[in-house]
Design a protein around this nucleic acid. Structure first.
Lengths: 310, 310
DNA sequence: ATCTATGCATAAGGGAAATTTATGCATGAC
DNA sequence: GTCATGCATAAATTTCCCTTATGCATAGAT
C-alpha cells in the first residue's frame, strides 16, 4: 500500500517547474529562488535515479519519464488544491456559535438578525447547551460560556459580569404588602432555590441561614425560563439584571434591593481556540458582539490568552 | 491558479492519520513518532483554522471538515504514489546503454544476448554514436566511451586499454614479400590514414616523418568497418588487438610487429551519473560487463568518481 | 565577432522547521 | 484500584531546506 514517495518539497518544486518549464518561474511561483528549485530537482533526480529534465541552454525540457511524472503529479496537486480550497471556503462561510441557553435566549436570539444582515456571506449555526452540559469548546468556532473556563491556550474576552439580585413581579410583591427586608423574600415562592446564587445573596444580605429547602427543587436551566416564571408572578427569582433590562424598564419586574452580588469566575465570556486568532468570521463575530455590548454601555477588555486549564 | 497549500509534511501526516484513524499507526507508517504526527496535525489545524480530528479518549475521529479533506487528500496521494510507482517501474525495466560504435559492434553485439538471458526483466536499448559524435552521457543510464571524459561527478570504470598496432591480411603482406620493417607498411594502402593513431605508432616505430598524405582521407568511423576492410585485404589498418582476437586467431589478420602503442586518455570505459549509483539495472549491467571481460582475462579496477570536468 | 543578458549549476552557510525524547494526562479494561 | 493505551506537550536536537554569491554556457544583439 505504502510506496515511499520522494521528498514532498522536491515533488512540489518539480510540479511547478514542469508547468513553467523554467526553474526561475517555478521559484517565483513558490516564493523561492531559482537555486532552491534547481536543488530540489536535482535531489528528486538523485532519488529517482533518472533525469526528469533535459537541460538545454536557456531552457529546460521534460525528459520522457519526466513528462510521464509531470502528468500525474500536476493532477494530484490540482486535486489537493481543489480539496483545500473547497473545504476552506465552506469553513469560511459557516460560523458555529456555541452558547449556553441563558445567553442565547436573553441576548443572542434577539440580535443575531443584525449580525446576519451585516454578514450575508456567513451562515450562523447556533448550538446552545443547557446548564448541566459543559460547553463544547472544541466543536464550535466560538463559544460563549460562563462557569466553565475554556481550555488552556484559548483566547478569552470577558463580556458581562454575572451579577445577580432577586427580581420579582410587582403584583407579587404587593400581595405581601411590599418587600422591605430580605427576609420578606422568604414569604414568597423561591424560583430555583437550589441555585447557589441564592445562598450567596442571602449571606451577603445578612441571612446566611435562610431556609431554602421548603420549596421543591426545580432548576429551570436558564435564566430565560426563570425570568418568565417571575414575570408571571409565580415567585421570586435570582437573576442578572442586565438580561432583564426590558422587563425592569417596562415594570414587569422590580428589583427590591440594591444589593447585587457578583460571581467571581462566572462572568459570561466569549472564547475561541487559538487557531481562530486570524479567522475572519470569528473576528467579525467578536467585533459585532463587542459593539452590541457597547451600545448597551458595556465595554469589553481586550482578548487574553488562557494560561491555565480547568 | 496557485492556492497556497498548508505545509506538505502536515498534509502527509494528515493523509496517513486519516486512513489509520490513529496518530500512532500513522507514525509507524511514515517512520515517525506519534509525537511528530500529533505536532503536524496540530500545525495543520492551526493553518486551516479548524479541527480535522476530534480527540476522543484512546481514539480519534475525523471532524466533518476533516472527512471532506481526507477524501481528496487520500485520493491525491494515491495518485502521486501510483504515478511514481509506474514511472519507476518503467525505469527499472529499461536499460539504455550508450556506446560508441566500435565497442558496440566489436564487443557488445555478440554478447548482449547473454545479458538479456540473465536478466529477462530488463529490456536493453542500445544507442550507439559514431566517432564524430560526443557520447550522450546524460541521456543514457550507462555509457561506454573512449576519448571523451564523462562529466564531473560521474562514476567511471576503465575497461579496456585502447592500445593499437597495425594489422593486415596475410595475403596482402605476402603480396609485397612480407612485412619486415615499419617502412614496408607504407608500400601498402593505409586504411584511414587520418587516424592520429598512425602518427603515434609510426613515431614510436622510428618513422616520425612517414608520409600518410598520399592516400585518400576516409575515416571509417569505427574499428569494425576498418577491420573488415583489412580482412578483405584492402589495406593495413591500425586497430586494437583485443577487438580483433577472433580474426587474429583464425589467421584472417596478422600483427606484423610487437610494437603496441597505448592511448593515454583513450581507454574504453564505462560510466554513469552518480544518481545511478544504486540503480539495480546499472549494477547488473556493470557486473555483467566486468565478468565478461574477466572471462577474457581482463580485470577492471573499482569504480572511481570523476573529479574534473572536460 | 564581440558583448550582454538570460538561465541553470554549485558551494557554503545560516536558520527555520521537523523530529525525537521524555514526560504528563485521561480513560477504558481488568 | 491498577495497568495499559493513546494523545498532548515541552525542550532539545538535528535535519535539510533555502539563500547568497558565484560560475558557466549560450542566445541574441550590436
Amino acid at each position: 500500500m505504502t510506496i515511499n514517495l520522494p521528498p514532498l518539497s522536491a515533488i512540489r518544486a518539480f510540479e511547478a517547474a514542469s508547468r513553467h518549464l523554467s526553474f526561475t518561474k517555478a521559484g517565483d511561483e513558490l516564493g523561492l529562488t531559482q537555486a532552491a528549485v534547481s536543488y530540489q530537482i536535482k535531489l528528486l533526480e538523485e532519488k529517482l535515479g533518472f533525469a526528469v529534465f533535459e537541460r538545454k541552454t536557456r531552457k529546460i525540457d521534460l525528459t520522457q519519464k519526466g513528462a510521464l511524472l509531470a502528468e500525474g503529479v500536476v493532477e494530484a496537486f490540482s486535486r489537493l488544491r481543489q480539496t483545500f480550497q473547497d473545504v476552506q471556503d465552506a469553513d469560511a462561510s459557516e460560523l458555529v456559535v456555541s452558547s449556553n441557553t441563558t445567553f442565547a435566549v436573553n441576548w443572542l436570539a434577539s440580535r443575531m438578525f443584525s449580525f446576519q444582515m451585516q454578514n450575508p456571506d456567513i451562515a450562523v449555526r447556533l448550538v446552545s447547551y443547557g446548564p448541566w452540559e459543559k460547553p463544547k469548546f472544541d466543536q464550535a468556532d466560538v463559544t460563549i460560556s460562563a462557569c466553565y473556563p475554556p481550555p488552556k491556550g484559548n483566547l478569552f474576552i470577558p463580556l458581562i459580569a454575572a451579577d445577580f439580585t432577586p427580581l420579582v413581579a410587582p403584583q407579587l410583591a404587593e400581595s405581601i404588602g411590599g418587600i422591605n427586608t430580605p427576609a420578606d423574600l422568604l414569604k414568597l415562592p423561591i424560583i430555583d432555590p437550589d441555585d447557589p446564587w441564592w445562598r450567596t445573596w442571602f449571606s451577603a444580605a445578612g441571612l446566611p441561614d435562610a431556609d431554602l429547602t421548603k420549596w421543591p427543587t426545580s432548576r429551570m436551566g436558564s435564566q430565560a425560563l426563570e425570568a418568565n416564571r417571575a414575570i408571571a408572578g409565580q415567585g421570586v427569582a435570582i437573576l442578572t439584571p442586565y438580561f432583564c433590562r426590558q422587563a425592569l424598564q417596562q415594570g414587569q419586574l422590580i428589583q427590591p434591593f440594591d444589593l447585587v452580588c457578583a460571581a467571581n469566575d462566572e462572568s459570561w465570556a466569549l472564547s475561541y481556540p487559538p487557531r481562530n486568532k486570524n479567522s475572519r468570521k470569528v473576528r467579525l463575530f467578536q467585533d459585532w458582539v463587542v459593539s452590541e455590548l457597547g451600545r448597551d454601555g458595556l465595554h469589553c477588555p481586550e482578548a487574553v490568552l488562557i494560561g491555565q486549564d480547568d
